[in-house]
Simulated assay, not measured.
Amino acid sequence: MEQGRVLEAFHLEAGQLARAMAGVSGAEWRLPTRCAPWTVGDLLAHVRVVIAWLPGMLTAPAPTRAEVSAAEYYRPDGRFAPDTNAARIALAQDHAAEQLTGAALADDFNATWQQVDRLCRAEPDGRVVRTRHGDPMLLSEFLLTRLVEVAVHGLDLADALGREPWLTSPAADLLQGLLLGPDGTAALERLRWGQLRFLRKATGREPITREEASNVSRLNIRWLTLG
């Protein structure tokens, strides 16, 4: 995966999310999301937490070589176990509680994504990092997993706030490639899904009918473990 392409998509998608959150009212921060038990504020705090791992990863010693791709990062192991998910939920809630207002949450997210963007742009192509799960990955591949977080939870936040999704085309294209591979466009045409609808269905945000499930199976599509 080309590092510059992923960085540009991350820049655009995170910027869109930051601008959307800047206009959230006091009451809206407490609205529930589909990612229970998180509120809008909790969910934005979660997105901030998962991109805030990067500065520390970039200062740590680099592994000699990458061994895990973005798709392999989502393998169904302990990172999605109940106790890990519980810790993930609590960490986001704790971070949200540290902020005095929703506006402070929005400002914190805005500052964090811009710091991450700036630091990653200073890194050479082929940079290898180690994730908190121990995976040696190309920075570009790990950034792709962070783009998943920003884009997919951006859909969750838009839905919770009753707004139109702000998913950007560069992010949608990269997520389609991650989830469907190089022949993704042909697969979507056979399924008769647009990118936004596909992303909702592939991540459990929209139910799949029995006929659609049959079509997915016939096309040998395998969903990633996203949570």
Rank of each mutant, 00 (worst) to 15 (best):
M1D: 05
E2T: 10
G4Y: 00
R5Y: 04
R5S: 05
V6G: 05
F10N: 10
L12P: 00
E13Y: 02
Q16N: 13
Q16M: 03
A18H: 04
V24E: 15
G26P: 15
E28W: 03
W29R: 11
R30L: 12
P32L: 02
C35G: 09
C35Y: 07
C35P: 10
A36Q: 12
W38M: 07
W38K: 04
V40I: 11
V40G: 13
D42R: 07
H46L: 11
R48L: 08
V50W: 15
A52K: 11
P55E: 12
P55R: 05
P55N: 06
G56F: 00
M57L: 00
M57T: 01
L58E: 05
T59G: 11
T59Q: 13
A60V: 07
P63G: 08
A66P: 08
V68E: 02
S69Y: 02
S69N: 02
A70L: 03
A70Q: 11
A71T: 08
R75L: 14
P76Y: 08
P76S: 07
R79S: 02
F80N: 12
A81K: 01
A81H: 06
P82V: 10
N85H: 04
A86T: 01
A86H: 06
A87S: 13
A87G: 08
I89G: 04
A92Y: 09
D94W: 01
A97N: 04
E98W: 03
L100Q: 09
A103G: 09
A104M: 14
L105G: 01
F109I: 07
A111I: 01
A111M: 12
Q114E: 07
Q115R: 09
D117C: 14
A122C: 05
P124A: 06
D125N: 03
V128D: 02
V128C: 02
V129E: 04
R132W: 15
G134R: 01
G134C: 06
G134S: 11
D135V: 01
S140E: 12
S140G: 10
E141M: 06
E141G: 04
F142A: 12
F142C: 07
L143N: 08
L144D: 11
R146H: 04
E149Q: 10
V152G: 05
V152Q: 02
V152D: 04
L157E: 04
R163P: 09
S169M: 02
P170I: 05
A171E: 14
D173T: 06
L174I: 13
G177Q: 14
L178G: 03
L179S: 15
L180K: 13
D183F: 10
D183C: 07
A186D: 14
L188Y: 06
R192T: 13
W193P: 08
W193A: 08
Q195F: 00
F198S: 02
K201Q: 10
K201G: 00
A202C: 07
T203E: 08
G204E: 14
E206Y: 02
P207N: 05
A213V: 03
S217V: 04
L219H: 06
R222N: 15
W223V: 15
L224D: 12
L226R: 13
